[in-house]
Write a protein that binds this DNA or RNA. Sequence first.
DNA 1: ACGGCGAATCCGTTACATCA
DNA 2: GTGATGTAACGGATTCGCCG
Length: 219
Amino acid sequence: MTANFNPPIKDHQMALISHQFFPVGIYNQVELGRHQGEVVMKPRRRRKKNKGEGGSSGLRLKKRKLNQDQVNLLELNFGNEHKLESERKDRLASELGLDPRQVAVWFQNRRARWKSKKLEEEYSKLKAEHEATIVHKCRLETEVLKLKEQLSEAEKENQRLLEVIRCDGVSINSPMSSSLSMEAMRPPFLGEFGMQGLENIFCVPENSYINGMEWVNLI
DNA sequence: ACGGCGAATCCGTTACATCA
DNA sequence: GTGATGTAACGGATTCGCCG
């Protein structure tokens, strides 16, 4: 930021300077209204926050929209650089027939709009990422459920085989059976934690509604 | 080093213009 | 006529660089 060390220019002085640089009639932006059929131009004054300014005088600030050419040139300049140096501001103001203050205000408001739009875009992007992550999480949870079922089936089969071996009276001393008998003495794998333990893996919150997504169907 | 000053900028708000 | 929306303009606060 480069400071300009010209003496401070108050608003009313700005209006006077403006009229020095630009012929009368160019400025329609500070028109305050009409009085007896004539356009009344007044130096802009700082507005009070309370409403009803000029109410009793009958003069009301008339805000004029910038015309399309002015906006186009401003947009073009904003596209090149969002910051507005003093020199560029004056040059633009001269080209557009506007008060430099108006150019500064336009850039200020334009930056605000740009920032707001950026934030909106960022929000949409994060929202999409969040939803994709939730879908991924649900898929993983479903996969865990399937694996859990497979494990349970395997455990059942294991138990069944051990029963068969026990009924057939296979010798404990036989090398083939020793490992099996050890297995039989060992509690089942799942038994260590129980099925309750596995249930804790699934941390699906109570309120797990996800923006109307029927995630089960997606899998 | 420090405070004062002026300029630029940001943020929130107000007021006006336009449109459905 | 009216509410919603867009935007020009404002006011206050903050930041930055220079100067005495």
